[in-house]
Amino acid sequence: MRLNTLQPAEGAREDRKRVGRGIGSGLGKTCGRGHKGSFARSGKGKIKAGFEGGQMPMYMRLPKIGFRSKSAKDTAEVLLYQLDKLEAGEIDLAKLRAAKLIPTTAKQAKIVVKGELTKAFVLKGLLATAGAKAAIEAAGGKVEE
């Protein structure tokens, strides 16, 4: 193999279409665009995704169901029994991240009732459900916002 013998693989490079160069080229007159219509015009060959030729599109015909909160992915849930595995004392977002109870992307955390709580915790800057708040206070802790 030598530098002067190098060439691209067979079929890797294709000659560009020379349109509008007479009947004999096969791409004369309409230049492969057919007759009239939006695809025959310059800059008009784009149709929006989901367009059905003026018919009411599928995404508008189907009913819309439910609601997806955009902030739900920012809030992580922590269960009481998971909280109980930590050392008693002050708990904040940073401590929950360090204990890997919530993902690093979470902007806030909410304590939810599930399981028992035996230690006294002081929650700082965390959300808690009414039941979780009652369980934390019953165990001798408190929730500060």
Rank of each mutant, 00 (worst) to 15 (best):
G50K: 04
I47H: 07
V113Q: 07
L3E: 13
A106V: 01
S38L: 15
K142W: 08
C31T: 13
A120S: 11
G140Q: 06
I47T: 12
I23R: 11
R33D: 05
G66D: 13
F67V: 14
Q7N: 12
E14L: 11
K142A: 05
F121P: 05
A135Y: 07
A120K: 05
K133V: 01
M60S: 11
A132F: 11
D74S: 09
G141P: 15
I102F: 02
A40T: 03
T105A: 10
F121A: 00
K119N: 14
K48G: 11
A120V: 06
L62M: 15
I91T: 02
G140E: 09
T5G: 07
R18T: 08
F51M: 07
R97I: 01
T104Y: 03
V113M: 07
L3I: 04
L126F: 15
A132E: 06
L96V: 03
R2P: 09
V112Y: 03
V19R: 14
C31I: 07
L86W: 09
G43S: 03
K114G: 01
E144Y: 01
G131N: 12
L123G: 02
K64R: 15
S69Y: 13
A9I: 12
M58R: 15
K36V: 09
P57M: 04
T30D: 14
G53F: 06
E14G: 05
K110F: 04
